[in-house]
């Protein structure tokens, strides 16, 4: 739905915090800790996503509200969550989490160059990120396309009423979808933190959420592989554009790319595979 980008931003935001668990465990350079941290992030983000869906979106859905209302609600929720972390969380955690400043980074992994490809250094962090992303993407893709739940999701996306007639619980499916979204966002949060350790702040993740939305739209909303492709394309073009035009033009390149692609393929690169996109 339309409000996802604000949603994702704040969920990523929440997903940052569980790496604070590793804070207490001291410095340990192991994948295990990273894995635990990632699970923690997924948990918080996924939980928040489901919670938001229950509290804010379900009543709207019940009333058949148009999509602008969903967007505004998502924006409202993202404000609430952001400010919660900004003001309330420090009070709840005695100042360790939240607040105005970014969290002190927890350096579990030091970037070390492993090898080079064509002159470009590839660090261990890069490897971890790419590998994790691929694994997660593969897992999600298999889930959507091969499992019963995934079929349910696709059915509800195409025709909610008939899906209900076929015994698919729409509410459950929607909750599941939000859960998956939240989990992935939480995972992404960890990967992002590996690369940008100073980014854990209440206002972090917003731009990322927008870029994520761009990537999804670029690839074609409703299409998992399209989203992957869109994300990859966006990342590559951004960095390439950075080299060609200069760092400050990076975001312009990203948005310009989006506009150009949408002009020629109004439904994204891989189009819409899940039936008509309802706005």
């Amino acid at each position: 739905m339309l409000g996802m980008f604000g949603q994702y931003a704040t969920l990523m935001l929440l997903g940052f915090y569980p790496s604070g668990n590793a804070y207490d465990k001291g410095v340990a350079l192991t994948v295990l800790y990273l894995g635990i941290a990632m699970l923690g992030g997924m948990l918080v983000a996924g939980g928040a996503a489901v919670g938001i869906e229950r509290v804010a979106y379900r009543p709207l859905r019940r009333r058949g509200a148009p999509s602008l209302v969903f967007l505004i609600t998502a924006i409202g929720m993202s404000f609430i969550i952001q400010e919660f972390v900004h003001f309330v969380l420090p009070k709840l955690t005695g100042g360790t989490l939240g607040g105005v400043n970014a969290q002190q980074p927890i350096r579990l992994v030091q970037p070390e160059v492993q090898f080079t490809i064509g002159g470009a250094p590839v660090t261990n962090i890069t490897l971890v990120i790419i590998l994790s992303a691929l694994v997660l993407a593969l897992a999600t893709d298999m889930f959507i396309n091969r499992t019963k739940f995934g079929r349910g999701i696709r059915a509800v996306a195409q025709d909610p009423v008939t899906a209900t007639l076929m015994g698919v619980s729409r509410e459950r499916v929607i909750m599941l979808t939000f859960l998956i979204g939240g989990i992935l966002a939480g995972a992404a949060a960890l990967l992002y933190t590996l690369r940008v350790p100073n980014g854990i702040i209440y206002s972090g993740g917003f731009i990322l959420g927008i870029k994520a939305f761009c990537a999804a739209v670029l690839g074609g909303i409703g299409n998992l592989r399209g989203a992957l492709l869109g994300g990859l394309l966006l990342g590559v073009m951004e960095n390439y554009g950075q080299v060609v035009f200069g760092t400050e033009w990076r975001d312009v390149v990203a948005f310009a790319l989006l506009i150009i692609v949408l002009m020629f393929r109004p439904t994204g690169i891989l189009g819409e595979s899940l039936g008509r996109a309802r706005a």
Binding site: V217, I221, V252, F255, A256, L258
Partner: peptide, 17 residues
């Protein structure tokens, strides 16, 4: 020519540009 989500993100891009 775009509708809904797509128009939203494109206008957002415009504002940022």
């Amino acid at each position: 020519r775009l509708r809904g989500d797509y128009l939203a993100i494109v206008t957002l891009g415009f504002g940022e540009i």
